[in-house]
Simulated assay, not measured.
Amino acid sequence: MTGRRLATVALVLAAVPLLWALRWTTPVYAELTGPIPVHGAPGEWVEGRQLGAKVSGVRLAGRLRAEVFGRRIERTTSGVWAVVDLELRATVDSVMLHGARWVGPSGRAYAASRRVEGPPNLATGLTLQPGLARKAILVFELPADEVADGELRLSALPEPRLDSEIRIALGAPPSSRAVTLELSRGG
Rank of each mutant, 00 (worst) to 15 (best):
V38E: 05
L6G: 07
L162P: 05
T77D: 06
E87Q: 15
L64N: 08
V58Y: 01
A41S: 14
V55Q: 02
L60K: 06
Y29H: 15
G79S: 07
W81G: 03
L157W: 14
G62Q: 11
A61K: 08
P35T: 02
W24I: 15
P174Y: 03
G150F: 04
G43S: 04
P130R: 00
G62V: 00
E182G: 07
R167T: 04
E141I: 08
R63S: 10
G125P: 03
T25V: 06
P160D: 01
Y110M: 06
A144G: 07
L154F: 09
L19E: 06
P120S: 09
L22V: 10
A15T: 09
A169M: 10
F140H: 07
L181D: 02
L13W: 10
V103W: 05
W81I: 02
T91S: 10
P17V: 03
E74K: 02
P160F: 04
F140A: 08
A111K: 12
G52N: 00
G62K: 09
T180F: 06
I166L: 12
W24H: 15
D145Q: 10
P42Y: 05
A100D: 04
T124V: 15
R65T: 15
I73N: 05
I73Y: 07
L64C: 08
A169I: 06
I36S: 11
P173V: 05
P35R: 12
T91V: 15
R101K: 13
A14H: 09
L170G: 03
E47L: 14
V38M: 02
P42W: 09
G48L: 04
G150D: 02
W102N: 04
E67G: 12
G57K: 00
E146V: 03
T180E: 14
R114M: 13
A61P: 12
S184D: 12
D85K: 07
E165L: 05
W20Q: 11
V95S: 09
A53W: 01
W102H: 05
P105G: 09
A61Y: 04
I36P: 01
L32H: 09
S56V: 11
R5T: 14
P35Y: 06
L11M: 14
R115C: 09
R75S: 10
I168R: 04
R71Y: 11
L6N: 12
P27R: 00
F140G: 09
V92N: 13
S176R: 13
Y110S: 05
W45M: 06
W81S: 07
L88K: 01
A10F: 03
L157C: 11
Y29A: 15
L162S: 12
P17R: 10
V55N: 00
R101E: 13
A30K: 12
A82P: 09
R65A: 14
L18D: 02
L51H: 08
L170R: 03
T127E: 13
G99A: 01
I73G: 11
S176Q: 14
V55S: 00
D93P: 06
P130G: 01
G62F: 03
A178H: 12
A30E: 15
E47R: 14
A112Y: 06
V92G: 11
A82Y: 10
P160H: 00
R59W: 03
G104N: 05
P35W: 12
V28C: 07
W45H: 07
W24Y: 14
G150I: 05
L19N: 04
P105F: 08
P160I: 01
D93T: 14
S106I: 05
G107L: 05
V139L: 08
S164R: 03
E47V: 11
S113K: 08
G79I: 07
